[in-house]
Write a protein that binds this DNA or RNA. Structure first.
Length: 364
DNA sequence: AAGCCGGGGGA
DNA sequence: TCCCCAGGCTT
C-alpha cells in the first residue's frame, strides 16, 4: 500500500491490545449478537448506519419480531417494512433492505451471499464497510470495516489530517483498516473496533487515560485528541416552507397520500403539502366537498441534515372527497393502519383529538 | 467530487 | 444551539 501512513504498531500487537481490551470492556450482549446470523447482522448493520446503538435496539427487536427471517422480509409489503422503520430516518435504507431481501431470496437461494464481499456490495444498501461487517461477523472470514468509529480511532492514532469524507483521506484510512485487520477472531475484532470508538475513543471526552494505545497515539501525544478527525466543512442550512393540509372527514379521519418512491420521505405516507394557501385552495376546490377551513395551527420546524423545513398545519373539515382525487387513504387515528409516516406527520397525527369517539371535545 | 437522505443524542 | 453518528446512492 503506497498510500498507507506508517502504522503506529505492528498489526499483531494492535490486534492483541484491542482484543484484550474488548474481552474486558466490550459489549457482548447486543441483540444481534445472540443468536448471531447473517440476516440479523445485516439488518442491524443497516439500521446502525448513521444511527446510534441505543436508538437502534428497540427498532431491531420490533423488526425481528415481525420479520424473523429473510423470507418473511422478502415477502412483506413495503408499507409494513416502512412502518417498522418510522422514526428511524434515512428511509432509503428500509427500501433497499426490502429490495435486497427479495433479490437474495430469488437469486441467491434465499440467503445472503456472504461468501463474497463483491456479491454483498452488489445488493442495494450494502457498501464496502457494511459488507465487511457482515462477512466478518457472520462468517469469520477476514474483512475490514471503515465506519465512523474506525475513522475516528485511526485518524487519532496516526494524527491523520483532513476530513475523512475526502477520497484521499478515506483511501489512507482503508489502507490502515485493512492492515490492522487480523486473520482470526474476526467477529470479535470487528465488534471491538466499533465498541472502542463508541465507548472509549468517543467524539467528545475520549477516555485517553484508560486507552490501551495511549503510549503510541499521536493525537494524544499532541495533547489534542479531539482535533481528529477534522470536521466536515459546514454550510448554512437553507429554510423551506410548506403548508400541510390536515383534511378530516365527518368521522374524523385524516387524508394521507403516499410520497414518490424515492427522494425525501420516499414511500412514506404524508399530509398533502402546498407552497401557498392559494395552491391549497385550488386543491380543495377540485378534491373536497364542502370544505371548511379551521384556523391555521402554529407553525413549527423540522430540521434535516441539509435544510430546515417550516411546517404550517392547515386543518380543514369536509363532507367527503369529490372530483378526480389522487390516490390516498383516510387515516383513522382510532385504528391507525400500519404505514410508514414521516416524523412530523406522525407527531401531528398523534396530537389529534379522535372526535369520532368524542363528539364534544373539550378545548385546551 | 459533491449533494442527497432523518432523526436523535450529547455537550 | 451545534456536531455528527455502525454509510450508501445519485449526479
Amino acid at each position: 500500500m503506497a498510500d498507507m501512513p506508517t502504522p503506529r504498531l505492528a498489526a499483531n500487537e494492535f490486534q492483541q491490545r484491542l482484543l484484550a481490551w474488548f474481552d474486558r470492556y466490550g459489549r457482548h450482549d447486543l441483540p444481534w449478537q445472540s443468536p448471531r446470523s447473517a440476516y440479523r447482522v445485516w439488518v442491524s448493520e443497516i439500521m446502525l448506519q448513521q444511527t446510534q446503538v441505543a436508538t437502534v435496539i428497540g427498532y431491531f427487536e420490533r423488526f425481528m419480531a415481525r420479520f424473523p427471517t429473510l423470507e418473511s422480509l422478502a415477502k412483506a409489503p413495503q408499507d409494513e417494512v416502512l412502518h417498522l422503520w418510522t422514526g428511524l430516518g434515512y428511509y432509503a435504507r428500509a427500501r433497499n433492505l426490502h429490495k435486497a431481501a427479495q433479490v437474495a431470496w430469488e437469486e441467491h437461494n434465499g440467503e445472503l451471499p456472504t461468501k463474497s464481499i463483491d456479491a454483498l456490495v452488489a445488493l442495494p444498501g450494502i457498501g464496502r464497510s457494511t459488507a465487511g461487517a457482515i462477512v466478518a461477523q457472520s462468517t469469520g472470514q477476514r474483512a475490514a470495516i471503515l465506519d465512523g468509529n474506525v475513522k475516528r480511532s485511526l485518524t487519532r492514532l496516526h494524527a491523520l489530517p483532513g476530513w475523512p469524507g475526502k477520497p484521499d483521506v478515506e483511501r489512507k484510512l482503508w489502507a490502515l483498516a485493512e492492515y490492522y485487520t487480523p486473520a482470526e477472531r474476526l467477529a470479535d475484532y470487528t465488534q471491538a473496533m466499533m465498541d472502542f470508538g463508541a465507548t472509549l475513543c468517543k467524539r467528545s471526552k475520549p477516555d485517553c487515560l484508560s486507552c490501551p494505545f495511549n503510549d503510541v497515539c499521536l493525537a494524544y501525544a499532541q495533547g489534542e485528541p479531539k482535533r481528529y478527525p477534522e470536521s466536515k466543512p459546514k454550510k448554512a442550512l437553507p429554510t423551506r416552507q410548506t403548508i400541510m393540509l390536515m383534511l378530516r372527514d365527518p368521522q374524523g379521519r385524516v387524508w394521507l397520500e403516499q410520497r414518490p418512491p424515492s427522494g425525501l420521505w420516499g414511500g412514506l405516507w404524508s399530509l398533502p403539502q402546498f407552497d401557498s394557501h392559494s395552491e391549497l385552495n385550488d386543491w380543495l376546490e377540485v378534491n373536497a366537498v364542502n370544505p371548511k377551513r379551521d384556523t391555521t395551527s402554529p407553525s413549527f420546524y423540522h430540521t434535516f441534515s441539509h435544510f430546515r423545513l417550516e411546517i404550517t398545519p392547515q386543518p380543514v373539515s369536509c363532507d367527503r372527497l369529490g372530483g378526480v382525487r389522487e390516490s390516498g387513504v383516510w387515516y383513522d387515528v382510532n385504528y391507525p393502519p400500519e404505514l410508514g409516516l414521516a416524523a412530523p406527520v406522525k407527531a401531528l397525527l398523534s396530537q389529534l383529538t379522535p372526535f369520532s369517539l368524542n363528539p364534544t371535545p373539550g378545548h385546551a
